[in-house]
């Protein structure tokens, strides 16, 4: 008997054209972007661009503002991902019991996620206002000196981080909660019978069972944090003194303030490559090929 060959699968008439279109579109676009990044296209000198080879990439390496932005992106991504996962997991473990208003709490958790970043950014800007904001008011209640949340170059990045954590921790909570609820409970009970304390049940049995879900949530959050733009745009515009300028935001400035299109695209490609390398590394650490141990 002849096995059903892929070639005789009639659905190929549907998916093959789609694959071709997607491939052509993404390959062509990527090549186009790379091609432009090898020129010195600038809207200030429209029509006079010429091929410059890797100049834009070399310029990037020697551009202290770009390197600082890259470092800031890394810092922001790592902090946001780690804190959101840790906090979200802690909340989930804490909420994992039956209490009266569980459904209400769960609905409330959705609020930050569905709010548009513009509103979130503005809200936190008000909260962080040095004169009229709630944050400083609360500090004054406990007698701590006022903080210039968004105006101090040393603090502003962390203020944006707070807003990001507020907005995205609930997302972590929802996904991890779903994973927890679909996990079998008998192994946890078996561990209790086997003499494990509650923290040991969590550490040895529950967390390993949630590892996959946590890893996927972490990947999603890391990708989003690297690309974060809206909160920065609304809350600080990269300031003060460039202290909150991420690479993504710097690319935007280069393109739309300096009109240096080729350099902006070079930055975009570097950011993409950087993201991919970082995430692939993370992915292979979290999901080892051999047996998924």
């Amino acid at each position: 008997m002849r096995p059903v060959a892929a070639a005789s699968d009639p659905t190929r008439h549907f998916f093959q054209p789609i694959i071709v279109c997607l491939t052509v579109a993404s390959v062509a676009l990527t090549l186009f972007v790379i091609w432009i990044s090898l020129h010195d296209l600038s809207l200030m000198r429209a029509g006079r661009e010429k091929f410059v080879g890797l100049d834009n990439y070399i310029r990037f390496l020697g551009d202290p503002r770009a390197m600082a932005a890259l470092w800031r992106t890394v810092l922001f991504t790592v902090l946001a991902t780690v804190i959101e996962i840790a906090l979200g997991l802690a909340v989930v473990l804490f909420l994992d019991r039956d209490f009266a208003m569980k459904r209400l709490v769960r609905t409330l958790l959705l609020v930050p996620i569905i709010m548009t970043p513009v509103v979130v950014g503005l809200t936190w800007r008000f909260l962080f206002d040095p004169a009229t904001g709630m944050a400083n008011y609360l500090l004054s209640l406990v007698g701590i000196a006022q903080v210039d949340w968004l105006g101090s170059p040393r603090i502003a990045l962390f203020s944006v981080l707070v807003a990001d954590i507020w907005q995205w921790t609930p997302f972590v909570i929802l996904l991890v909660m779903a994973a927890l609820e679909s996990a079998p409970t008998d192994p946890l009970n078996a561990a209790r019978v086997d003499g494990a304390r509650e923290w040991q049940v969590t550490w040895y049995v529950l967390l390993p069972m949630l590892r996959r879900a946590l890893a996927i949530v972490a990947l999603i959050r890391a990708i989003d944090s690297i690309k974060a733009f809206d909160l920065f745009y609304i809350m600080t515009r990269g300031g003060p003194a460039l202290s909150t300028e991420t690479l993504n935001y710097y690319g935007y400035i280069v393109a739309f303030t300096n009109f240096d299109i080729s350099y902006a695209l070079a930055i975009a490609i570097i950011l993409t490559v950087f993201t991919n390398v970082a995430l692939l590394t993370m992915y292979s650490v979290l999901f080892p090929k051999t047996g998924d141990r």
């Binding site: 008998d186 192994p187 078996a190 040895y204």
Partner: peptide, 11 residues
């Protein structure tokens, strides 16, 4: 205890 569902630690 031996559980009806085995309850082995999956990881």
């Amino acid at each position: 205890m031996v559980f009806q569902s085995y309850a082995l630690y999956p990881t």
